[in-house]
């Protein structure tokens, strides 16, 4: 992130933040861990570049963060990260503007980290992951949003039996029937290898629905289970990945994990179908199917 405030700058801004630690940064966002009223929280700072003032970008950045917070507030599920105690506000650090708010701090590791560590989940773990993910997406769906960035990096395995997997980051969530936050000609936001085929259509906003998230969920679970992306190949160009997403049949999960129930593999494969109509219509429909699989 550009202009990431150092720990001392954040401490000066909010002396009440105890045990302050830098966690991560990327894009315009930096994340810190702090203890507030005895509880650890993830403090988020989003940089508002001064040049954004001129082209309407400032309003868009603020609207986007407001939308993320609104989406989280409207999703009453513990499968999604919860908001923290700090309400959204604009702060100034060394003359630069930032948005500040907090979420609960989640201890654990991302699915991406586990994939890198060549973790091989068993069926029970995969079933739990799929259940948590579908419950999270059902809440997103019922709130009238689409997550748009489901991927291994945005899922945290906590090790807690109550909340074993938690979905993060509604930063690019799309509100169905909501005001557009980006120009019509802008490409779809998201992480390319996890984007559903329909998102590469010029009119993607007209065809976007929760089935795009179901696709990304399928790709994520497939990759976590097998260590292999069902379509993308390591090191290839972005346009090659896009071509595969649009044209190439996805790998079949049963071919890579013959030890898993065929019906579970079929469920994941169905989520990854190119035609949205061939996927589950809602996360709940997939969840009902999952319930029938032992």
């Amino acid at each position: 992130m550009q202009n990431t405030p150092v720990i001392e700058e954040v401490r000066r801004l909010r002396p009440e933040f105890a045990d302050l630690e830098f966690v991560d940064s990327g894009g315009f966002k930096a994340v810190y861990k702090a203890t507030l009223a005895g509880h650890p929280e993830a403090v988020k700072l989003i940089y508002i570049p001064p040049e954004a003032e001129e082209d309407g970008g400032r309003a868009e950045i603020i609207a986007r963060v407001k939308r993320e917070i609104e989406a989280l507030r409207l999703c009453p599920t513990n499968r999604l990260v919860r908001l923290g105690s700090i309400e959204l506000q604009i702060v100034s650090i060394t003359g630069r503007d930032y948005l500040l708010y907090s979420e609960e701090f989640l201890a654990g590791e991302s699915l991406r980290a586990r994939i890198r560590a060549q973790h091989r989940p068993d069926y029970a773990e995969l079933r739990t992951l799929m259940t948590c993910l579908l419950e999270a997406l059902q809440a997103v769906h019922q709130s009238g949003h689409i997550h748009r960035d489901v991927k291994p990096d945005n899922l945290i395995a906590t090790g807690s039996p109550d909340r074993p997997f938690i979905l993060l980051d509604l930063g690019i969530a799309f509100k169905i029937h909501g005001t557009e936050l980006t120009a019509r000609h802008a490409g779809p936001p998201g992480t390319l290898a996890y984007m559903a085929p329909e998102l590469f259509q010029p009119n993607y906003k007209d065809v976007l629905d929760i089935r795009s998230d179901i696709y990304s969920a399928g790709v994520t679970v497939f990759e976590y289970a097998t260590g292999t992306h069902p379509l993308a190949r390591a090191g290839e160009t972005e346009y090659s990945t896009v071509w595969r997403i649009l044209n190439q049949p996805a790998l079949k999960m049963i071919d890579l994990r013959g030890d898993l129930p065929a019906s579970f593999c079929g469920l994941v494969d169905r989520c990854v179908k190119k035609l949205p109509a061939l996927r589950y219509a809602t996360p709940q429909a997939a969840w009902r199917q999952l319930e029938t699989i032992q």
């Binding site: 329909e198 065809v207 089935r211 035609l275 949205p276 109509a277 219509a281």
Partner: peptide, 10 residues
């Protein structure tokens, strides 16, 4: 046809 199917199932 596929676009119709996507709408029909939603």
């Amino acid at each position: 046809f596929k676009s119709f199917l996507n709408d029909l199932t939603a």
